[in-house]
Computed example of a mutant assay.
Amino acid sequence: MNKEKILEAIIEGYRNSIHQRYQYQNIKDKYEIPESIDEETVNLLRNYWLSYIYPEYSRRKELNEAFQNLDNYIKHPKQLLSILLDASKLIFKYGRHLPKILTSGLKAMKSFRIAANFENSFVEEAINNNIDGPYDQSKINTLIKLLPRKEIEKFIGISQSLFEILHDKVLIEKIKGIIQYLILAMKKNENAFSSGQIKGLELGFELLNEGYKLFNQLAEEDQRKLVYLITEIEKDMLGYNE
């Protein structure tokens, strides 16, 4: 198998792993969860993981291309900030907090990029250790154990940050407003921004908005419990709690 075929097989294997561990009965048997986090909520959470963080291979290629266009903004957000500095309404509304809000939004979007990097690490370990596909749960576990602990810690930290932002209703509403403004401003100045850059920001907005919908259906206390639950499930899966 060439590198791209291995990546496709690993994505399929890891998606199967997510599908299995985010089954309501499995979670209920292993963790203490409130009644409000019911089977429907777990199903929505699983679908969110599989649609936006770990999409299937064909969708992943599309998202990778879009988010690669945003990488420079995520690393160096000054160009986006320069657009916002012309928005008197936003400056009046958020003042000196505007850069911090934008940075939080870009940080949340970065979670998709870290997921892609995580899978690329699996590919490297599979090649270096002659672990061929298909990749069932046993082989996925073997690949996880080959990863440096620092890489696992980084992945867990960024994933947790995403869900903490998504459950912060006040912050996410501000982020959404700013990102929507940026998209409209970039579309009005297409000579300065490529369609790929705009598409990346639109997909980033979708990622945040759909995650917000997931959390917003729960009471504040249960949102915090869901963030904690997701973190514990992922830590257990990645052997972090061992």
Score class of each variant (00 low, 15 high):
residue 1 M to S: 14
residue 3 K to L: 07
residue 5 K to W: 00
residue 5 K to G: 05
residue 9 A to S: 14
residue 10 I to Y: 03
residue 10 I to P: 01
residue 11 I to V: 15
residue 13 G to V: 08
residue 19 H to T: 07
residue 25 Q to M: 10
residue 27 I to C: 08
residue 27 I to S: 04
residue 27 I to T: 06
residue 30 K to I: 11
residue 32 E to Y: 10
residue 33 I to N: 05
residue 37 I to N: 00
residue 44 L to W: 02
residue 44 L to G: 00
residue 44 L to F: 03
residue 53 I to P: 00
residue 53 I to R: 05
residue 54 Y to M: 08
residue 58 S to P: 00
residue 59 R to L: 04
residue 60 R to V: 04
residue 61 K to C: 01
residue 66 A to G: 01
residue 70 L to D: 01
residue 75 K to I: 12
residue 78 K to D: 13
residue 85 L to N: 04
residue 86 D to L: 09
residue 87 A to F: 06
residue 91 I to Y: 02
residue 92 F to G: 01
residue 94 Y to P: 14
residue 94 Y to C: 11
residue 96 R to P: 00
residue 96 R to A: 07
residue 101 I to T: 10
residue 101 I to H: 11
residue 102 L to H: 06
residue 104 S to T: 11
residue 110 K to T: 04
residue 112 F to H: 09
residue 114 I to Q: 12
residue 125 E to Q: 08
residue 126 A to W: 01
residue 131 I to W: 06
residue 144 I to M: 05
residue 146 L to D: 03
residue 147 L to Y: 03
residue 148 P to N: 15
residue 152 I to M: 09
residue 153 E to Q: 14
residue 156 I to T: 10
residue 157 G to R: 15
residue 158 I to S: 10
residue 158 I to Q: 15
residue 159 S to A: 08
residue 159 S to I: 12
residue 160 Q to M: 13
residue 160 Q to G: 10
residue 160 Q to F: 13
residue 165 I to V: 15
residue 170 V to W: 10
residue 172 I to Y: 02
residue 175 I to N: 01
residue 176 K to H: 07
residue 176 K to R: 10
residue 177 G to Y: 05
residue 177 G to R: 10
residue 180 Q to H: 10
residue 186 M to P: 00
residue 188 K to N: 11
residue 188 K to W: 00
residue 191 N to L: 11
residue 195 S to T: 08
residue 197 Q to N: 11
residue 198 I to L: 06
residue 200 G to A: 04
residue 200 G to V: 03
residue 202 E to M: 11
residue 204 G to A: 06
residue 205 F to T: 01
residue 206 E to W: 08
residue 207 L to Q: 10
residue 210 E to R: 15
residue 211 G to A: 05
residue 216 N to Y: 14
residue 218 L to T: 12
residue 220 E to M: 10
residue 221 E to M: 07
residue 222 D to N: 15
residue 222 D to F: 07
residue 223 Q to Y: 04
residue 226 L to V: 09
residue 233 I to G: 12
residue 235 K to H: 05
residue 235 K to E: 13
residue 235 K to R: 14
residue 238 L to Y: 12
residue 240 Y to R: 13
residue 242 E to Y: 13
